[in-house]
Design a binder for these strands. Structure first.
Ligand code: ZN
Ligand code: ZN
Ligand code: ZN
Ligand code: ZN
Lengths: 159, 159
DNA sequence: GCAGGTATTGTAATGTTATAACATATCTAC
DNA sequence: GTAGATATGTTATAACATTACAATACCTGC
């Protein structure tokens, strides 16, 4: 089931799976999923909305896990560098990864109605981008593919 | 000459053409290309690098054209809304459009070596994005497609 | 177990990007 | 020339991000 995050689903299971996979991969690859990092991942997993670094920071502060911006940014850097989360450039915010595997260059769909962000792992858009870049002799190191609009639910309600 | 901005070219002509087209389109569509807006467009056209709002603001200040952030942001908003310039989300910065026509959803190639930004008007990436979104029932209003890496010149030098 | 190096966290200060809100001026249409 | 719309001037503040350095935790070899 190609979960892009908008369809109805058992989100508790969704969270549990993601967390378990993260733990497993961290162990396998010798990554240290420390308390702050793990907690930030949990916070991002709470729903499929993107959260800003300062939203995360506020939560950490409330829990006594860190008081200054670098605490949040460092955890988010760790999570994004290792593919547990992604940064949404359009929003200057972060979402938990819903595609599990390590390296990937996904595309995102950002709903202006409900603020959810859907992820698609490998896309025609990504392939197209690589092809265009190659044709121009451009060597791609990182790519950003984001669509902003209305998710199926929100488009239906005319919102 | 599908100018993506990286190839060698007569940049004076490049600027003159863009400016003339902007004037023409502004007149045709009843848009007001005021002194500040026109000057900001000129500043963006100076080269094919992206410039931050505060870079622009500094230039305006030096020229006595405006002293506060909103002056720069408003001009940039006008230019981007009307397709004379584009915002590069990855850089929180702005480039002049090199594709002339009105509505378009381009992709950008951001060089980490020389900081130039190349634009491609309509791309396979854009088409792919639309297709993926449609398949997911997502209604796209705006899209962001940006590749970061090395341009042909910079990739050659191993930089 | 303990020294020494590496990775992580704590904290203060600061830098950068962006907007809200409201006053004033300019343009356009009638 | 007056009214309404559009654009600009200005203050203040919000939102996002990093630098720099100190302290601690952790691993690893001995
Ligand atoms: Zn879920
Ligand atoms: Zn939605
Ligand atoms: Zn040029
Ligand atoms: Zn370059």
């Amino acid at each position: 089931m190609s979960a892009h995050g908008f369809e109805r689903h058992d989100h508790k299971r969704c969270v549990a799976t993601a967390l378990a996979e993260a733990e497993a991969r961290a162990t396998a690859e010798g990554l240290r999923l420390t308390p702050v990092r793990r907690r930030v991942l949990e916070l991002l997993l709470e729903d499929h909305r993107a959260q800003g670094a300062y939203d995360i920071l506020a939560r950490l502060q409330a829990e006594g896990l860190g008081a200054q911006p670098p605490v949040a940014y460092r955890a988010l850097d760790f999570l994004t560098k290792n593919g547990f989360a992604h940064r949404i450039e359009r929003l200057n915010a972060y979402v938990a990864c819903t595609e599990g595997a390590g390296e990937h260059a996904p595309m995102f769909m950002i709903c202006k109605g409900c603020e959810r962000v859907g992820e698609i792992g490998e896309t025609a858009a990504g392939a197209g981008l690589k092809a265009e870049a190659a044709a121009a002799g451009f060597a791609v190191e990182r790519q950003v593919i984001e669509a902003e609009g209305l998710c199926p639910d929100c488009a239906g309600t005319g919102a």
